[in-house]
Amino acid sequence: MVGVGGRYYEDCAEAKPVTERAADTVGGVAPYALDRENAARLWAVSEALVG
């Protein structure tokens, strides 16, 4: 999709947030991966580490 970012897709559809997974399940996206504050903090730490 053009112009769409920050989303996770699987099987040609947007992945649903999941809080628990069965041992044999790999689908969905963890809520922390969608958290904008976490993303901003990760970016700031990464910039500090690489200069």
Rank of each mutant, 00 (worst) to 15 (best):
G6V: 00
S46H: 07
E37F: 09
Y9L: 12
R7V: 14
P31F: 00
W43K: 11
D35C: 15
G6N: 00
L34P: 06
L42Q: 07
P31L: 03
R7M: 11
T19F: 01
G27S: 15
A15M: 04
V29E: 02
A22V: 06
A44Q: 09
W43G: 03
V45R: 09
E47F: 05
A23S: 13
R36V: 13
T19C: 08
A22N: 14
A23I: 06
L49E: 10
A40E: 08
E47H: 05
A48F: 01
R41E: 09
A30Y: 01
N38W: 02
S46V: 03
D24A: 14
L49S: 09
V50H: 07
A48P: 00
W43Q: 11
C12S: 11
W43C: 06
L49Q: 10
A30N: 05
V45L: 13
A39Y: 02
K16Q: 13
E20N: 14
W43F: 05
G28D: 00
A13G: 04
R21S: 13
A48W: 00
A48S: 07
L42F: 04
N38Y: 07
G6E: 00
E20S: 15
T19S: 10
Y32Q: 14
V29W: 01
A33C: 14
D11M: 08
D24Q: 13
V45I: 11
D24E: 15
A48V: 01
E14L: 06
P17W: 00
E10T: 10
G28W: 00
L34I: 06
N38K: 12
R21M: 11
A22H: 09
L34W: 00
V29A: 07
A44D: 10
C12F: 10
R7W: 03
M1P: 12
V18A: 13
V45E: 14
G3L: 05
V26L: 08
G3N: 14
G6H: 00
V4S: 12
L34Y: 01
G51E: 01
V45D: 12
L34S: 08
M1Y: 12
